[in-house]
């Protein structure tokens, strides 16, 4: 349902002769239902990569496919959860979650059932009629997740989704995300600069180097869920990734 493949994807900005290369020759594949973290420093082009998968930006070279269909623009099969939530402030929680379903022209009763299901999934049933301004950061991000999942996308894209949250809330939301993902398995691409977040959440970690962004390594995380941050395997992987990223900073 949600296979993703990137083949030779590059992105350059600027006018000819004065270009800046953001990403160069990025290729990897994700299986259906795989949870992938894109890990790298700020400026490594990881958000650009996500924006191209979402269809907000077009690659300068290479091709991105979802289920063998080339990506040519934004669409409901690839929905995004933004760091700043990007909820519609004029709409209630329920209206926010229902937005994509209205765009799909679902009848009202089917819409209501799907919205209720997703509000239940993110545990916000009692907050359906609140406005985003009346919610905490963690709750807003749960609304954003519900809104993105409600249209049944093939791929869920997350751009540093917990970056604006305090440490405690971030921990809680990471656990929540894993719980939600296990109940509704989806291919997930999550951009992060946090090594811990990548290890805690992902099946596969794509490590990007900076300027220009290119793949440094793609590695699988074969740790039992829920993941134990104190286990030797976890710590070994963390040390390895830190070395990989640190070498980058030194270079």
């Amino acid at each position: 349902m949600g296979r993703v493949s990137l083949a030779g994807v590059s992105k350059t900005y600027g006018d000819p002769g004065q270009t800046v290369t953001a990403l160069t020759n990025v290729s990897f594949e994700l299986a259906d239902g795989e949870f992938c973290a894109i890990l790298g420093h700020s400026g490594c082009g990881k958000t650009t990569l996500l924006n191209m998968v979402a269809g907000f930006e077009t690659p300068s070279a290479g091709i991105i496919r979802v289920e063998d269909q080339p990506v040519s623009g934004p669409g409901w099969e690839r929905t995004m959860v933004f760091q700043d939530y990007a909820l519609f402030p004029w709409a209630t929680v329920r209206q926010n979650v229902a937005f994509g379903l209205e765009m799909k022209k679902l009848p009202a009763d089917a819409r209501a059932a799907i919205v209720d299901h997703h509000l239940d999934l993110v545990e916000l049933t009692g907050f359906a009629d609140r406005y985003p301004d009346q919610l905490s950061g963690g709750m807003r991000q749960r609304v954003a997740i519900a809104r993105a999942l409600a249209v049944s996308p093939r791929v869920l894209l997350m751009d540093e989704p917990f970056g604006a949250l305090d440490d405690q809330t971030r921990r809680y939301m990471q656990e929540e995300l894993v719980r939600i993902w296990r109940r509704e398995p989806k291919t997930v691409m999550l951009v992060t600069h946090s090594i811990d977040e990548a290890i805690l959440l992902a099946d596969k970690i794509v490590v990007l180097s900076s300027r220009p962004g290119r793949i440094k390594q793609v590695l699988s995380v074969d740790l039992e869920r829920p993941r134990d941050e104190d286990s030797p395997d976890y710590l070994a992987l963390k040390r390895y990734l830190r070395g990989l990223i640190h070498a980058e900073t030194a270079a």
Binding site: T79, A86, K104
Partner: peptide, 8 residues
């Protein structure tokens, strides 16, 4: 962007 990807 959010609205576009939700199909608007």
């Amino acid at each position: 962007r959010a609205a576009r990807s939700l199909g608007a």
